[in-house]
Design a protein around this nucleic acid. Structure first.
Lengths: 224, 224
DNA sequence: CCAAAAGTGTTCAGCCTACACCCATGC
DNA sequence: GCATGGGTGTAGGCTGAACACTTTTGG
């Protein structure tokens, strides 16, 4: 192709992630407060321009680490946003991902991280966002709800060991639904993805729950 | 962002489609014979660089029309290929789509089109492809097989009116499976997506089949 | 011993699977 | 009238939904 042709020059790629986690009070998304124009002072999703020598996913991981201190997230590409005017300075095509992380990993990091400008927002309390990020976040959320049904992706939102009630709560939060305790347990165990593991010794009120873990990594399998 | 920073300069976007149709002898993909270096003489998928003033999907539709004469296909984005060396002249990120079209529309076009370099290949007889297009085609095919289960996407592979056996054959081809005629009919009718329509008058051997059409456009609904 | 939370089993309905015979047409 | 291809119904097994009581712990 003709490298100097004006039709193609000055294009760039944005890698952008809607980062989600589950907190006690439900699903949360991570937002960054922008420090520079354009959209100075606005909340936006995490991401940025991809360098020439990295894949889009490498660029995304780098941007997330630089801006939030988080790493080793689970990523999944779900869309492309390419309105020619979506970014004011030059033509940028956004490649959009959802990224998922277990809240416990976030908590461990929080004490040492450079997250002064990053904050978790409950999904029902998202402010207005800069760029086209509101659209990206909404489509990312829809994608998350879809994939939660079709694989054991919840694995990445949970600690290594977890109880049935914890697992059930995540499905109920994400799918905005209630399930019968007995049926839920039967269903999840029948999928053959879980194995029982030993108690973690922490005692709370009530009968202690059994602990489980996922036998294998992410697998495509219809959950509901 | 800094528009002149070397880290970001000289990037471009490829929109690339694995175009599929159903012919009598099964699923076929459209390939283009490349006329220039690099990969001169090799078969590749349809696509090309996106202009500054168009969305990726607009660029894709334009490229497909320029190179094959086809238009009004159904598109669905399924992946991003961004190995920094995937294209020799400059850094190009490929945004990959599947595109689907009814073979009858292709036949009508064929007589007048500029498709000297485009040819349909049965999916089991694909030659070696240039660039990373073999990988893109394989992942596109996997995507197609997935979505066929979850929506009435077959609509775009069929003429407006079709018979149950025609419909069944498409599912069997794509899913590489056999279904019982009675159960297939029951299942498809129970989804409520089809309505009976009048015969097209064309007579062949055997008892004439009833004709159906889809009541509405593409809908997400689990088919199997 | 009381409150809190988790574990457990059975019944019913709807759906999927397997399966064989009759019917309308062209030649 | 025969060959070709399409249409149709039923019985059994499986899966998902509804539902209430018992068990273990902390205080």
């Amino acid at each position: 192709m003709d490298v100097t042709n004006k039709k193609y020059s000055n294009q760039g790629i944005h890698a952008i992630a809607a980062i989600f986690t589950i907190e006690n009070d439900g699903l949360s998304a991570l937002l960054i407060k922008r420090k520079k124009e354009p959209y100075k002072g606005k909340w936006i999703l995490t991401g940025g321009a991809v360098y020439n020598d990295e894949t889009v996913e490498e660029g995304l991981a780098r941007e997330i680490y630089e801006k939030t201190g988080l790493k080793d997230l689970y990523y999944e590409q779900f869309g492309v946003f390419s309105n020619p005017n979506r970014s004011p300075l030059m033509r940028m095509v956004a490649i959009a991902y959802i990224a998922l992380i277990d809240i416990q990993k976030v908590k461990i990091l929080k004490e040492t991280s450079h997250t002064q400008n990053a904050e978790w927002f409950n999904i029902n309390e998202i402010p207005k966002l800069g760029y086209d990020h509101e659209k990206i976040l909404n489509e990312g959320l829809a994608h998350l709800k879809k994939i939660i049904l079709k694989s054991n992706i919840v694995k990445v939102l949970l600690p290594d060991k977890f109880t049935m009630p914890q697992l059930q709560k995540i499905y109920e939060t994400l799918l905005n639904n209630k399930y019968d305790r007995r049926n839920f347990r039967k269903k999840l165990l029948s999928l053959g993805l879980l194995e029982e593991t030993e108690d973690d010794g922490i005692r709370k009120v009530g009968k202690p729950a059994k602990y489980y873990r996922f036998k294998q990594d992410i697998v495509e399998k219809s959950i509901f």
